[in-house]
Amino acid sequence: MSRLDVRKTYKLYIGGKFPRSESGRSYEVVSASGEFLANAAMGSRKDVRDAVVAARGALAGWAGATAYNRGQVLYRVAEVLEGRRAQFVDEVAASEGLTVRAAGAVVDAAIDRVVWYAGWTDKIAQVLGNLNPVAGPFFNVSAPEPTGVVGVLAPQGSSLLGLVSVVAPVIAAGNTAVVVTSAARPLPAVTFSEVLATSDVPGGVVNIVTAQTAEVATWLAAHRDVNAIDLTGVAGANGVDWAALEAEAAGNLKRVYRPALADGAPVEPDWNADPGLGRIRAFVETKTVWHPKGL
């Protein structure tokens, strides 16, 4: 007797909980070759709004945590990722149409990427901060501080390595994130949210909304309580005008991380390249303090 398939319907990840979409909608996720994989919640603008509220609530605690502590938490994320390696390999292979071997390399790279950013948390201040020479009896110190709540449009193509590469730098710097996943390949992101929920990341620090990018991106870009937006995921997204998103983002002077461009059109970057500090630098603000020198 053949066993019935357990057809999963996944939910969102907001504020450390797994709620259904406020809209009650879901959509079918299919593999690269068109086979049914699972149902995912189709997030709406109100889910994005709720996610921003959760991210704002979590910001003080996460930004106030020591960099050392954030590094430990990120390393723990890498450990739990490693523990669920097989599941990620299956999902990446199905979502992206890779061989098991190629998918395994992608998952390994993703785990290594988290470890890499975990190592950076307590070194950001040394590299991006400075003791400035000034002509007066003052110490003049510049130090990077988290920008705040960051909206992240995760890449449409690279569903795990790309996702990790955009989320990890945001939270490594002490920001909280509202992530809109790849519309067509959301499953690795859903499983990643299960990893986050079981690895010491405080609820609300990362909120993951599976949604049609074009539908919710405008709301995220226009949201006055979001401090920065990463537009990486506009590359390959249907019906998204990234220049319009940047214009919306100007409403409250959000930091905007522009997508990589080739011939003027957004493209996905090479996720295997050395990430550099660009994504961390994009989501910190420099605070400079003058302090009188003692005698």
Binding site: R49, V52, R56, W219, A222, H223, R224, D225, V226, E248, G251, N252
Partner: peptide, 14 residues
């Protein structure tokens, strides 16, 4: 009220 007036979600900064 601000959301209805501007069409964008507002925040505690306002």
């Amino acid at each position: 009220r601000q959301k209805l007036a501007t069409g964008a979600y507002s925040g505690a900064d306002y």
